[in-house]
């Protein structure tokens, strides 16, 4: 059981829900929760959403992108009011996770709202004072679509490169384009540093980015993927 304690606008279509969950057992960054909505006549439906926050309290944060014509996300992003309750189950997922005692280099590659579970890793690293070297490559359509950028660029402790696919801010050196191998070379880790790579985004982005990483010599077993799609509502 979770109660909406607050919310923050992140972009025009994405909002962070701050939820109080008494008895929350804690989580590993990268895990998600199942949210179940129930209508007055008993109809119910559920969706999974990644945790955006670091563990450590009974307050969790989910950053939800509203899916046009979705069944659940418009309710969470637009209709739900502070004080409203939803059922939350979790945390779930034991693979796409980072553990704070890990010391090897980490490369995070996020596309669009796929940044959310990676942001939980960035926040956890900072909260735990981990010295694991982190680099983040964040591919996003336009400056207006960026999530969490002030926090990322202002001392989050993770070297961050924001890349644009459709339109870049004025004066940007890199012309807008989809992620390229040279972006991963310029802003990632060389394969011989053997980083653990976490790739999250829409399916096309994940297929493309994971393929580029393999092509650059990263071992497939060190590349962990998670996909977001318009499906999910």
């Amino acid at each position: 059981m979770a109660t909406l304690a607050g919310r923050r606008d992140e972009t025009a279509g994405a909002r962070t829900l701050v939820l109080d969950v008494p008895g929350w057992p804690g989580h590993l960054p990268g895990q998600h929760v199942d949210v179940r909505l129930t209508a007055e006549d008993g109809y119910s439906t559920q969706r999974g959403y990644s945790l955006a926050s670091a563990p450590g309290t009974e307050r969790i944060e989910l950053t939800v992108q509203q899916v046009e014509d979705g069944e659940v996300s418009p309710y969470l992003v637009t209709d739900m009011a502070v004080g409203d309750q939803v059922e939350v189950r979790g945390p779930v997922g034991g693979w796409f996770v980072w553990t704070p005692d890990a010391t090897e280099p980490v490369l995070l590659v996020g596309g669009g709202v796929g940044l959310v579970p990676l942001m939980s890793m960035v926040r956890t690293r900072r909260a735990e004072n981990s010295q694991a070297p982190f680099r983040l490559i964040y591919s996003v359509r336009t400056p207006a679509d960026r999530l969490f950028v002030p926090e990322l660029l202002d001392g989050a402790g993770t070297e961050t490169a924001v890349l644009y696919t459709r339109s870049a801010p004025e004066g940007a050196e890199r012309a807008p384009s989809r992620l390229r191998a040279e972006d991963l070379v310029a802003h990632g880790w060389p394969a011989d540093r053997a980083p653990t790579c976490y790739v999250c985004g829409p399916t096309g982005f994940v297929e493309h980015a994971a393929g580029l990483l393999v092509g650059l010599g990263h071992a497939p077993e060190r590349i962990r993927t998670e996909r977001f799609g318009p499906t999910g509502g």
């Binding site: 909505l37 008993g42 009011a81 939803v86």
Partner: peptide, 10 residues
């Protein structure tokens, strides 16, 4: 179950 106020679903 908790009723989600104003949720109708599809």
């Amino acid at each position: 179950p908790v009723i989600s106020r104003g949720f109708h679903g599809r």
